[in-house]
Lab assay of single mutants.
Amino acid sequence: ENVVSAPMPGKVLRVLVRVGDRVRVGQGLLVLEAMKMENEIPSPRDGVVKRILVKEGEIVDTGQPKIELG
Rank of each mutant, 00 (worst) to 15 (best):
L32V: 09
L13C: 08
G28W: 10
R45I: 15
G47V: 03
V23H: 02
K11D: 00
E58R: 02
G10V: 07
Q64S: 08
R45E: 05
V23W: 04
L32A: 00
P7Q: 12
D46W: 08
E38N: 09
L29G: 00
L30E: 00
V54W: 03
V54L: 02
T62K: 14
V23G: 01
I41M: 05
R24G: 08
K66C: 15
P65L: 09
V25Y: 12
G10H: 03
P7V: 11
V48C: 12
D46L: 05
E56M: 09
V23Y: 03
P65I: 11
V17W: 00
Q27M: 09
G20A: 05
L53E: 02
V31F: 03
G10N: 02
G10S: 04
G20S: 05
A6W: 07
L32R: 00
E33Y: 15
V12L: 04
G26C: 09
V48S: 05
E1F: 13
S5Y: 15
M37E: 11
M8D: 00
T62M: 14
V12N: 00
G70E: 15
K11H: 04
L29P: 01
R18W: 06
D21N: 06
P42A: 12
G63M: 08
L29N: 00
P65N: 07
R14A: 07
G70C: 15
V15D: 00
I41A: 02
S5C: 15
K66L: 15
V17M: 02
K50E: 08
G70Y: 15
E1A: 13
P42Y: 12
P44V: 05
D61A: 14
E1G: 13
K50T: 13
E68L: 15
V31E: 00
R14E: 04
Q64G: 05
L29H: 00
S5I: 13
V15W: 07
L30P: 00
R18M: 10
K55Q: 11
V48E: 06
G47Q: 02
N2F: 15
I59D: 10
R22M: 12
L16P: 00
P7C: 12
V3W: 15
K11G: 01
I67A: 02
E38W: 10
V12E: 00
D46N: 12
M35I: 07
A34D: 06
E68M: 13
E68F: 13
R45P: 01
R18Y: 06
V4S: 04
V17Q: 01
E40C: 15
S5D: 06
E38L: 12
L69W: 06
L69H: 01
G47L: 03
V23A: 02
G57K: 03
V54P: 01
R18P: 00
V4M: 05
